[in-house]
C-alpha cells in the first residue's frame, strides 16, 4: 500500500480486479460498436445528419440535437449511452462510492480508520478521488478504444474526428462525476453498501428512463431537464467535434453539489458500526 494517500490506494487496491474486468468489458464493448458501425455501408444509413428517426431514438444515440441513430456519430454515440455502458459505469461508481464510507461502517472497519489522525474530510476526499480515478480509467478505456477504431477505419474517420472522440470522452467523465456526487453523499449518510448501490443505480436508471420518456412523449418533455442524460450527448460531441460546455457545466455542478453535501453529512454523524 502506498503511504502517501493510503485510503485512496486502499480503495483502488481492494477493487482492482473489478476495475480491470470493467475496463476490459468497456474495451470489448466499444470494439464491438466500432466493428458494427464499420459493417454498415454509408448507403444503408438512413441519413447522416438528418433527423429521420423518431425523436425518442435520439436518447439511444446520445443526442439532443440533430444527430440521428442512423448515422456514424449516432451509431458510435449509441455505444456511449448503451445500457451496458451505463451499467459498467454505475457498477464502478456504486461500488467505490459504497466503499467510501458506508461499506466501512457496515463491515466495522471504520473503527480502525477513524481512530487514526485522519479527518473525515480526508477520508471522503481520498475515497472520492478513487472514484474519479476509476471513472477516468473507464472513460479512457472507452475513448481510446473508439479513437483507435475510428483511426483504423477511413469511412468512420471521415464522419467522426478524433477531437470529437475526445470531446465525447470528456463528456463521459462529466456524466460519471455527476453520478458520483450524489452517490458519495448517500455513502456519507448511509450505513449499508446496498443503500449506496441502490441509490446510484436508481439515479442512473431513472435518469435514463426519464430522458427517454421526455423525448418520446411531448407532454413529458420538460422533464428532460431533470435527467443527467439530457446533458450527456456523446452523439452530438462525436458529430460536431466539440464539448458542449453548458451541458458539461450542468453535469459537473450536480456532481459537485453532491460532493459538497457529502462533507457536512459525514462531519455531523456518528461513525460507530
Amino acid at each position: 500500500m502506498r503511504s502517501r494517500f493510503p485510503l485512496f490506494w486502499l480503495a483502488l487496491h481492494r477493487r482492482r480486479r473489478m476495475l480491470a474486468y470493467l475496463a476490459a468489458g468497456m474495451v470489448l464493448f466499444e470494439t464491438l460498436m466500432v466493428v458494427v458501425s464499420r459493417a454498415v455501408p454509408p448507403a444503408q444509413l438512413l441519413g447522416g445528419e438528418v433527423n429521420a428517426a423518431p425523436g425518442a431514438f435520439q436518447a439511444f444515440s446520445g443526442s439532443t440535437g440533430d444527430v440521428s441513430l442512423a448515422s456514424y456519430p449516432g451509431l458510435l454515440g449509441a455505444g456511449l449511452v448503451h445500457p451496458l455502458w451505463i451499467a459498467l459505469q454505475l457498477t464502478a461508481i456504486g461500488s467505490l462510492a459504497a466503499a467510501a464510507v458506508a461499506a466501512d461502517l457496515e463491515s466495522g472497519t471504520i473503527e480502525l480508520l477513524i481512530t487514526r489522525p485522519i479527518s473525515r474530510a480526508r477520508l471522503l476526499a481520498e475515497r472520492g478521488a478513487a472514484i474519479v480515478a476509476a471513472s477516468v480509467l473507464l472513460n479512457a478505456a472507452a475513448t481510446v478504444t473508439l479513437a483507435v477504431g475510428i483511426a483504423a477505419s477511413p469511412t468512420l474517420h471521415r464522419a467522426v474526428s478524433l477531437s470529437g472522440v475526445v470531446a465525447a470522452g470528456l463528456l463521459g467523465c462529466c456524466l460519471t462525476l455527476c453520478l458520483t456526487g450524489p452517490a458519495l453523499a448517500v455513502s456519507a449518510a448511509g450505513r449499508r453498501r446496498a443503500q449506496v448501490l441502490g441509490a446510484t443505480i436508481a439515479f442512473g436508471a431513472v435518469g435514463f428512463a426519464l430522458n427517454f420518456i421526455a423525448m418520446a412523449w411531448s407532454k413529458a418533455r420538460p422533464l428532460r431537464y431533470l435527467s443527467p442524460f439530457h446533458y450527456y450527448t456523446p452523439g452530438d460531441a462525436l458529430a460536431h467535434a466539440h464539448l458542449p460546455w453548458a451541458s458539461a457545466a450542468v453535469l459537473l455542478a450536480v456532481g459537485m453539489a453532491g460532493v459538497v453535501a457529502a462533507f457536512p453529512l459525514l462531519n455531523h454523524r456518528d461513525l460507530a458500526p
Binding site: P6, P117, I118
Partner: peptide, 11 residues
C-alpha cells in the same frame, strides 16, 4: 499490509 496501512494512517 494491514499493519503497514494502519501505521501509515497513524502518521
Amino acid at each position: 499490509q494491514t499493519l503497514g496501512l494502519l501505521g501509515d494512517l497513524q502518521g
